[in-house]
Nucleic acid binder design. Structure first.
Lengths: 196, 196
DNA sequence: CGTCCGCTTGACTCAGATCAAACTTGGTGG
DNA sequence: CCACCAAGTTTGATCTGAGTCAAGCGGACG
């Protein structure tokens, strides 16, 4: 179930809008009306600390839902802001909850989506607990590999991979070079060959 | 909805067992029968990398569910191991899915639980993107504070707080001292007073 | 053709990890 | 009630590796 499936499922209770950079989607404290899904672009959930600094609670990329928690809270507890020109889907909270109540299959599908999210996020956290860049890269790749596989095609750029695993691109490139020198990994463009 | 609520909801399809340290709950590749909830103790989800190293995909603490993804997968893709003497609830996958299908309110409640998880995990990741220990501490505390509050009672030990935010306890204590010296925070045991 | 962006490498810095050690605190059991 | 042990707390010294700033290369795309 991807974001567009959700839009179709909800029919009139969902709509797609375009937002310009820095356009605010909702403010902290507003009553919750919508859950959102990024179709294209990027959006941030932000909060202001006591000291006035801004912290990013979540940066949603294309294909991600965000503000799911709004479904279960009467008010937003963060600000939502488009951080690029973005195409974003708005899902009416009440309609979504009703659909979940009444349509068992839909509810299961939605849970599945959330469960996968949880799984990905947890492994991402444990990954970041590894201090060595080399270990982090090897672990991240191992997680993406399925079942005895030893080759992997990077879906995005190396730079975005660096972000995914919480490294600067410089640190990534250097660690990759060390891994290649010690024959733990070989790469050709975006094809990666583990071990040898 | 906490773990014990789930046990009651599921009746005969849930049971509670005790596991000794290093007792394996399930192996990677086994057909999925259960989702789990830690009542007491600790359990790890682990995978072995190509190079034979063990990576921890998730460490579940008391009160947490784990292996939710098992609900939607025919086989476990990690090993599950108790890392302490633990009391763990086992929920039958099929019963859970059926209940979710047929009982709308239950499905919504389960989604709520997952949504909160997602929310917490995301903010935890963004938190770890902050490089300075002081910023990390202040941001973490700000997130735990609700709405104009300025005092906070730490639920666990400082050491466990350090783990939560991805610092060593030494780094935490030092940063706390700096924060106190610069009057950005005051603490008395486990009571924390922000700003002043 | 020029610009943007991903890629790559270099030099430097510093904050947090690591190892070590002392002290408090709380709980257990005799 | 006290001895004792485990765990949390606190401080010190040292080191390392990722962040940062800087700069050059090359391919894609308008």
């Amino acid at each position: 179930m991807d974001v567009m499936d959700l839009v179709e499922h909800l029919g009139g209770a969902a709509r797609v809008e375009r937002f310009k950079v820095d356009k605010t989607l909702f403010h902290r404290g507003d009553p919750t009306r919508h859950m959102y899904g990024v179709l294209d672009g990027q959006a941030d959930l932000r909060r202001i600390t006591i000291e006035g600094a801004e912290i990013i609670v979540h940066r949603a990329q294309s294909g991600e839902l965000f503000a799911e928690a709004a479904l279960f809270s009467p008010r937003y507890h963060c600000d939502g802001v488009a951080t690029a020109g973005s195409k974003i889907a708005l899902f009416e909270k009440t309609a979504l909850l009703e659909l979940m109540q009444s349509d068992g299959a839909f509810a299961v599908g939605f849970c599945q989506r959330l469960a996968r999210q949880v799984q990905r996020l947890r492994s991402s956290i444990e990954l970041r607990a590894m201090h060595s860049a080399e270990d982090r890269i090897m672990a991240a790749l191992s997680l993406r590999l399925g079942d005895g596989e030893t080759r992997y095609a990077l879906p995005g750029t190396w730079k975005s991979f660096a972000q995914d695993i919480g490294l600067t691109h410089e640190a990534l490139y250097r660690a990759l070079k060390r891994l290649e020198r010690s024959k733990r990994l070989h790469r050709d463009g975006r094809m990666i060959q583990l071990g040898v």
